[in-house]
Design a protein around this nucleic acid. Structure first.
Length: 488
RNA sequence: GCUCCGGUAGUGUAGCUCGGCCAAUCAUGCAGGACUCUCACUCCUGCGACUGGGGUUCAAAUCCCCACCGGAGCACCA
């Protein structure tokens, strides 16, 4: 009775894709000039999410056609594969543009034959001047035969870098100057990290990407709003060739509060200048850094899917990722004591020999013993506002009253947690003097302190340092444990 | 200069295609409370938005126009 009206259900997850019923072919197409960043993760995750939803194929395509300005890194190809896999987005097929130059040449020749492209020998500045004035350059009217001959000169070395480019004919009087006769190939004699000096004519993004999307049968393209004009440019190419353009979706630029805006190239420069310890430095906005810090792929996936694919430029906070991750990690993270900036605390009276502390407050993960005694360490942050006569509870150990401040002395006034509760004592954590030195690498700096010795058993695990935050134990060396900070 | 795109709470997001179910969804954040030997987790309550102005209409977050704000392209970069 009540459901006569069709209630609009709030859209859950990603919006549907137009014409995706029979399955999709989608691609993520990075330039491998560094490891995947959080921005890359968005592309990897969203594309793969759609493929999972509609069925079909996920392609990982390396658009590595600039050996100079955005020079590829050989290691980065593997990094993308590795991080895609970790993110739960294993590609069905991997394509590397620098392997496929001959295909592009073939299409270039066909395009020339069809009169869809010409070899332009203007220098950059004078072409721009003509283009801005919506005037054709002198080479635009060359016959396909002339163009083919010049193309061969580009290929065989008769023309030097800068002396000629192949341009796709569009509409030289188009009202948007960005679309007028764009360059498809240029001469580059620099060596390429993968294929050396085998080729001297390299395609530009609009050609390479546009051609590949067709060759690979891509049905849906998701790309940045900054590439909107790319689609409009490529449509001219598709028209010359008689191809059908895929469906496109655009999204806006993404900024992250905690990292600001970043580009792979900028990060690479900073890294090479020695500002970071590596691509997985805790301060890096890379997938591998997040992984090292103990962020789970599931948290990232959920976060990215929740972001959606809007065309608005967004400025997001890692807080949401952290909130997702906290929920995943909390039930399995062992609790440990880590005392930051330790201050010695003398305790008089009957201090228990050891604390029997649960690994988890609510789940049955067992207990660990932490040796105690009359000399302990507490966090510098916890003692700043202490005064003589003040009382507090050392968690899982005993209740104390502060006797003196500098140096810090106290006496046991009981061990019963209920007493502490009745007295509404503040509860702080502590560490034994024979604990292990711990260094915590954080996005915002480094903390040092002493942790309970049991942390040595937690290599590669995500644990919670009580009242401090979640960390991943990164290394357990003789003298020091290194932890990477995930979030509070 | 030319051209294109966008503007819902602090931050994201749903709703906008086919105007009424929207005194506007969800998450995160913040505030308060419950639980708890952690400032974690969980639960409850609360805070908080349709950029502005015109127009069309019985009715506009949704359609049209203008303004303002933000982003992007006009590379032999991706």
């Amino acid at each position: 009775m009540a459901e006569l009206g069709v209630k609009k259900e709030p859209d859950k997850g990603l919006p549907g894709l137009e014409g995706a019923k029979g399955g999709v072919v989608m691609r993520f197409a990075p330039n491998p000039n560094g490891p995947p960043t959080i921005g890359s993760a968005r592309g990897i995750i969203i594309n793969s999410e759609y493929v999972k939803r509609y069925g079909g194929k996920l392609l990982l395509r390396f658009d590595d056609t600039d050996p100079v300005n955005k020079r590829p890194m050989l290691e980065a190809y593997g990094w993308y594969l590795e991080d895609s896999k970790w993110l739960g987005s294993v590609p069905d097929e991997v394509v590397i543009a620098s392997d496929r130059l001959p295909k592009y040449y073939e299409i270039a020749r066909e395009l020339i034959r069809r009169g869809g492209a010409y070899v332009c020998r203007c220098d950059q500045a004078s072409f721009k001047a003509l283009k801005d004035a919506a005037k054709p350059c002198p080479h635009r009217g060359q016959s396909p035969e002339e163009n083919m001959a010049l193309w061969k000169d580009m290929m065989n070395g008769n023309l030097a870098p800068g002396e000629a480019v192949l341009r796709v004919k569009t509409d030289i009087v188009h009202k948007d100057p960005a679309l007028r006769d764009w360059a498809a190939f240029r001469i580059v004699t620099a060596d390429h990290p993968r294929v050396g000096e085998r080729y001297r004519v390299w395609p530009l993004l609009d050609f390479e990407s546009g051609v590949e999307d067709h060759l690979l049968g891509v049905t849906h393209i998701i790309r940045g709003k900054d590439l909107m004009d790319s689609e409009r440019r490529q449509r001219y190419l598709y028209e010359h060739m008689g191809w059908e353009y895929p469906t496109t979706i655009h999204w806006g630029r993404i900024k992250i509060h905690q990292f600001g805006s970043f580009s792979t190239s900028a990060l690479r420069r900073a890294l090479e200048a020695g500002e970071y310890s590596g691509w997985d430095d805790a301060r890096m906005p890379t997938v591998r850094a997040l992984r090292r810090r103990g962020i789970r792929a599931e948290a990232l996936r959920k976060f990215m899917i929740d972001l959606g694919v809007g065309e608005t430029d967004i400025s997001i906070s890692m807080d949401s990722v952290y909130a997702e991750n906290r929920k995943i990690v909390d039930p399995e993270a062992k609790r440990r004591f880590f005392v930051k900036d330790p201050v010695p605390l003398e305790v008089e009276g009957n201090v228990p020999k050891a604390a029997k502390a649960p690994f988890h407050p609510t789940l049955n993960l067992g207990f660990r013993d932490i040796p105690a005694g009359s000399k302990l360490l507490v966090s510098g942050d916890d003692v700043t506002d202490l005064k003589a006569g003040g009382k507090l509870r050392l968690k899982d150990l005993c209740n104390i009253e502060i006797v003196a401040i500098d140096p810090l002395r106290s006496r046991v006034i009981g061990t019963d947690p209920h007493q502490a509760k009745e007295m509404k004592l503040r509860i702080i954590h502590w560490a034994p003097t024979d604990g292990v030195p711990v260094r915590v690498m954080r996005p915002d700096g480094v903390d040092t302190g002493i942790g309970e010795a049991g942390i040595r058993d937690d290599l590669d695990q995500v644990v919670q340092f009580e009242r401090y935050g979640f960390v991943r134990i990164d290394s357990v060396a003789e003298g020091e444990i290194v932890a990477y900070f995930a979030h509070r």
